[in-house]
């Protein structure tokens, strides 16, 4: 196990530096003046431009710039937004809300995805299975912002079941609708994954043995089939964080949830390039770390990975 963890951590190092270098190079090595580009469609404000050049050390050679940026990132210093507040403070304020939203989304997709996927997998090829498969494709096909607007209009405006927008300091019930919208896409993937995995598990040797030794059908189905088919689902939920973050930018923007995604959304709309780049870079870093954590969890769940 320790060997696996060590190897996985070592593999992580080049990917982490590579990915951050990639983003940094995209921002500052593209032709044209990066500071002017950071202002977007607005005119360049000389005072801010000078501060940005200093903040990103643009007078140094490129690699030195990058290393200074990483040094800043590791000490959680990401510079300031246009309003003068440190970016890390903005994120610290918004982060708990996003975590709450992500938990609602994860709970929705995990519970509904696994239950429906399990039922569909048990009767592969039946009417329930076929209906659920087509419906899940439809859900995957609808872009998240379309789903967000439709849900906002139907539940918030037309039927008035919930508030169409979430204000500051939202509770779990306020986050229910945005959470369902955010989780909908991955719900469909979790469903399909669980279904295939359960359907395959049904014909596995260990399941036949469990039935043959006289275990009751519910026990075989839950302990021997379902539990084993959850392993790929757990991995998916980890890698899915990336899609969840992208979706959060849109969902939080639509429902006005004061989270990290909304921070990106508002910064993009207002043309605050530096804030966008800093926050999204942090999101990518969080994504990389979360993936590492899931990989380690995966090894705990599945001994075959540890010893491979």
């Amino acid at each position: 196990m320790a060997w696996y963890v060590g190897r996985r951590l070592l593999q992580m190092v080049p990917v982490f530096f590579g990915a951050t270098l990639l983003i940094y190079a995209l921002v500052f090595l593209l032709p044209g003046d990066p500071v002017a580009a950071l202002f977007g469609d607005r005119g360049v404000n000389e005072a801010t431009a000078a501060r940005l050049r200093e903040q990103y050390n643009l007078d140094e050679p490129f690699l030195v710039q990058y290393l200074l940026f990483i040094k800043g990132a590791l000490s959680l210093d990401f510079g300031q937004s246009f309003t003068g507040r440190p970016v890390i403070d903005l994120i610290a304020d918004a982060f708990p809300v996003t975590v709450k939203l992500a938990l609602v989304a994860l709970a929705v997709e995990a519970v509904f995805g696994i239950v429906f996927g399990f039922l569909a997998g048990l009767r592969r090829g039946g009417w329930f299975d076929s209906t659920v498969l087509v419906l899940s494709l439809v859900v995957i096909g609808i872009p998240v912002f379309v789903l967000g607007f439709v849900a906002q209009f139907l539940f918030g405006v037309k039927w008035g079941v919930v508030n169409p927008t979430v204000g500051s300091d939202p509770g779990l019930t306020d986050l229910l609708l945005p959470g369902v919208v955010l989780g909908a896409l991955s719900f469909a993937y979790v469903l399909r994954l669980t279904r295939n995995s359960v359907a395959e598990g049904l014909s596995a040797d260990h399941v036949r043995t469990a039935t043959a030794k006289g275990l009751s059908r519910p026990r075989v189905m839950t302990v021997h089939v379902l539990r084993n088919s959850l392993i790929p689902v757990v991995t998916f939920l980890g890698t899915d964080l990336g899609a969840l973050m992208g979706g959060a930018i849109v969902t939080e923007g639509i429902f006005n949830v004061p989270g990290v995604g909304n921070l990106v959304y508002q910064s993009v709309i207002r043309g605050e390039g530096p804030t966008v780049v800093s926050v999204v870079t942090i999101l990518v870093m969080v994504y990389l770390l979360a993936n590492l954590a899931v990989d380690l969890l995966y090894a705990v769940l599945d001994p075959r990975i540890r010893y491979a």
Binding site: I23, G242, G246, V277, Y287
Partner: peptide, 10 residues
Amino acid sequence: AVPLLLGGII
């Protein structure tokens, strides 16, 4: 390692 939408935004 960079999610499509996040990289696209940057």
